[in-house]
Design a protein around this nucleic acid. Sequence first.
DNA 1: GCCAACGTTGGC
DNA 2: GCCAACGTTGGC
Length: 157
Amino acid sequence: MYWLLKTEPSVFSFEDLVKSPNKTTCWEGVRNYQARNFLRDGFQKGDLVFIYHSNVEEPAIMGIATVVRTAYPDPFAVDRKSKYFDERVKPRDKNPWVVVDVQASERFANPVTREQMMAQASLKGMALLKRGNRLSVLPITKDQYQTLCKLGKPTAL
DNA sequence: GCCAACGTTGGC
DNA sequence: GCCAACGTTGGC
């Protein structure tokens, strides 16, 4: 399967992922149930994931990561010191939030900008491109994956 | 259970 | 900085 994860590069960028130990990080802080369901029920080991920079001048897909660990409880949701702490998760409840681990695998030689995607007829209808879409975890079809790779030119790290 | 108010995301 | 979209909250 193929996915897309949004991130604000001022918080955590694709290059931050590349620089992480073993180029791997746990993708914390997802606090939306639909997005959570994708992470929990959809993400499989080996799935490929586009990393997309949002809330910047030129939103773009920067590269590809691989799922290296399937969903497990988000430790930050129950860590009072974390900015992702969720007050509503009471100790005796089960923590509803999950993370997956992703490892950077390839960098796009040509990051694919939102503008480029908008101009691609074959990407018409992508949820990502819909105005007002706020979902931070999105499924990508095989066709979309191939189109985006053709544009992005993935290169080994 | 309805729905208005509010808060957040994120493109523009 | 504006505001569209939409999820969440809380009064009733």
